[in-house]
Amino acid sequence: MKVTVKSWTGVALWKWIANDDNCGICRMAFEACCPDCSFAGDDCPLVWGHCSHVFHMHCICKWLNSQLNQQLCPMCRQTWRFNDR
């Protein structure tokens, strides 16, 4: 007997490579989107801070905009700086 695979369609879940599962601001899974979005992934990306904390980009931007003077990470209170990985 000879078996030839002509085509194989697999199913995969996509995942963010991050050291956490949920966004610390909106509490949603990273693979879900922030409350303002309808679609996750490309439409609602993650961003990393130098402090190594990760958030939905929309969530951290909203957070930073609401801060008056200092731009602090909501998790560790260090000055927030984007990490362009």
Partner: peptide
Amino acid sequence: NRTLCWTPLNGKVNIEIE
């Protein structure tokens, strides 16, 4: 920053058996 987790049991396969 994104990766895939395969779910091996899902999907479909077209095979030819001789």
